[in-house]
């Protein structure tokens, strides 16, 4: 483009005008990253989108989507995924708020607690699943404790069903949500609350009228990120869940289509449905969030 323009105008002035708008050779530093994102993210995504409209078995562009939505075994995976991920994400966020609120100040051992909380995030879902199988299993420590203090007569079934996956999502998701919310809460200027306290507001009013409104955008963001983690639940749904029944989540459906039936167009269609559902939930949350105060939280945000 610049060579074309250069034939009409003196070359120097074109370069000069581009440089005035912020375009010069330094932008080339951006090139590898842009090429990379286009080559490994945008292109595969568009390729998958295109592939999903070319069903392997023929029958029109939307045949694979029709197949997904008309087969209740496939369609229900959306509902099963949401039934796991929305409550898990909500629980993680809502449980984090009071704990983070209490821990926002400085106290001894804060660094130790935050470090301990990073451990399950680092270990990841596969190891958590292995631990849950041992710990919550019928002969595991948890059930033994419940039985020895006489709370239950028979082992409670907590693995290979919905609850096993739910627990794994809480174990890995809660620390994530907590650390994020803790950093949001610490960013709220404490003098705002002190001012309210001077005016006679009790802690309930201070929380409702000051902390919560300032925290709401952070809560929405944390919910979105936790939800994304929970929505793409895959290893734990297979290992501690019931992958043919209650926890056959949508990522299992996509995986099976791609790697067990080798039907890549169908797998791409499922992946696209998965992305669309997820973005829909996030859009709803962000829409809700946009009704709140956005701006400086008065502290180091």
């Amino acid at each position: 483009m610049s060579t074309e323009a250069a034939t009409q105008h003196p070359g120097l002035s074109v370069r000069h005008r581009l440089a005035e708008r912020g375009v010069d050779s330094q932008l080339l530093l951006l090139l590898p990253a842009v090429v990379f994102v286009i080559g490994l993210f945008v292109y595969p995504f568009l390729y998958g989108l295109g592939l999903s409209f070319q069903p392997a078995k023929g029958g029109g562009a939307f045949a694979d989507y029709q197949r997904f939505f008309s087969d209740s075994f496939q369609r229900d995976t959306i509902w099963k995924t949401l039934r796991l991920s929305v409550p898990a994400a909500l629980f993680n966020v809502l449980a984090s708020v009071p704990i983070a609120y209490r821990m926002r100040g400085k106290f001894r051992g804060k660094r130790l607690i935050t470090t301990l909380l990073v451990i399950p995030i680092t270990l990841g879902t596969v190891l958590t699943a292995e631990g849950l199988l041992n710990f919550l299993g019928p002969a595991g420590w948890f059930n033994r404790t419940l039985m020895s203090i006489g709370l239950v007569d028979h082992p409670v079934r907590l693995i290979n069903n919905y609850w096993g996956v739910f627990f794994s999502l809480v174990i890995t998701g809660f620390p994530f949500a907590f650390l994020l919310i803790l950093s949001y809460i610490s960013g709220i200027d404490p003098s705002l609350e002190r001012a309210a306290a001077t005016l006679g507001a009790d802690w309930r009013a201070r929380f409702q009228r000051i902390t919560l409104p300032l925290l709401a955008p952070g809560l929405a963001t944390t919910f979105c990120l936790t939800f994304v983690l929970a929505f793409s639940v895959f290893p734990s749904a297979i290992l501690v869940g019931d992958p043919t029944g209650a926890t056959r989540v949508i990522s299992i459906a996509a995986y099976q289509a791609a790697y067990e039936q080798y039907d890549y167009p169908f797998a791409s269609a499922i992946a696209m449905v998965m992305g669309a559902v997820e973005l829909l939930v996030i859009a709803v949350v962000l829409l809700w969030r946009s009704r709140f105060y956005v701006g400086s939280t008065g502290g180091k945000g």
């Binding site: 990253a33 994102v37 993210f41 595969p44 998958g48 592939l51 995986y255 791609a258 998965m274």
Partner: peptide, 20 residues
């Protein structure tokens, strides 16, 4: 474009990516 790969769940773009 740089933000999206982090926001999307790995399985969603992982399957088209693996296909490519």
């Amino acid at each position: 474009a740089f933000l999206l790969p982090i926001m999307m769940p790995p399985i969603t773009y992982g399957i088209p990516l693996a296909t490519v």
